[in-house]
Amino acid sequence: MNRKMKSNPQVRTMSRGTKIFTYICLAWAVLVALMPLVWLFISSLKKDPLARPGFQLPESICLDGYISTFRDLHVMRYFGNSMIIAGVSVVISILMISMSAYVVARMEFKGKKLVNLMLYSTMFIPATALTYPVYNLVNKMHIYNTRGALIFIYACSGLAVSFFVIKNYYANIPHELEEAARIDGCGYAMTWWKVIFPIARPGIMTAGVLAFLNNWNEYYWASLVIVDREKLTVPALLSTFTTSFRTNYNGLFSAMVIIILPPVILYCVFSKFFVEALSGGAVKG
């Protein structure tokens, strides 16, 4: 531990006051991030969350919301829908983006800046602005009210963020590795698969996890193009707890706790890829 601190000049030169201020800021950030989750979990254990709002502990632990979510709503069916739709769309989108980002990051061609500009500009287009053209296209393709419609939409959504992450990771890979692969007789596709992809795996995995989380939590398109209850995704399921006359808050909060568990577990499993990707894409010898 002491050896690591000595090798890091920022840790060595940090004053005591700076350390204390840094820890206070980190503690405040953790508190702000965890407060909604703690509030949600405590509320899910109350029989009537409105009777004891906020962080008041429940008089008695009520698990009716969790039981009804699994027994009556068959939440695992919707988990399966979300897992299939989000997983397949991520594989399609990341495969396309990782190859296209390789071309943009490692090759020179006319219109390269225009391609970058067009991809990055999609970050500023809200989903509501694309409602009519996408809805019309889905109907013309005769895939409305199918899982394929959501897979098609999700695979083409959020391209700019994934492209930005993967492209920046590609840009830090030395060109000498590609030249060595060319000497060995590898083409562009084989160079990407054998050389670039293994090195850039942390960046690609990071983009994949971000895309999966975005697709898992997406509600707008899922509620728009899916009508059959059996085909709904997990976020669209939450709307069933609210009717014109009342809202089942105990069941709603319990379902929300169950829904956020897979993203949390997924991030914990792949957290090392986030750390490696944020380190700048350093190439290990």
Rank of each mutant, 00 (worst) to 15 (best):
G54K: 02
L50C: 00
L57E: 03
V38Q: 04
M35G: 04
F41G: 09
R52T: 09
A51W: 05
L31W: 03
L40M: 15
S43T: 12
L31N: 00
S60L: 02
K47Y: 09
L37C: 14
V38K: 07
W39Y: 14
P36C: 06
G54Y: 11
P53H: 02
V38M: 13
I42M: 11
G54L: 06
I42Y: 11
K47L: 10
P58I: 00
L57I: 02
S44A: 14
S44Q: 04
W39H: 12
K46T: 15
L37S: 12
K46L: 13
D48W: 07
P36A: 13
V38P: 07
L34V: 10
A51P: 07
P36F: 03
L45V: 08
V30P: 02
I42G: 07
L37K: 01
S43Y: 03
S60H: 01
L40D: 15
M35Y: 15
I42A: 13
L40W: 15
I42C: 06
D48G: 05
S44F: 03
Q56E: 10
L37A: 07
L45Q: 03
P58Q: 00
G54N: 04
L40C: 15
G54Q: 05
E59S: 07
P49T: 01
P49Q: 06
V30G: 08
L57N: 00
A51C: 02
L45Y: 06
L40V: 15
E59M: 05
L50Q: 03
A29F: 11
L34P: 09
V32Q: 05
P36R: 09
P53D: 05
V38N: 04
A51L: 03
S43E: 10
M35R: 01
P49C: 04
A33H: 04
L50M: 08
E59A: 14
L50R: 04
F41D: 04
L34F: 14
L57K: 00
P36H: 08
A51T: 04
W39T: 13
E59C: 01
V30T: 12
L50G: 00
D48L: 13
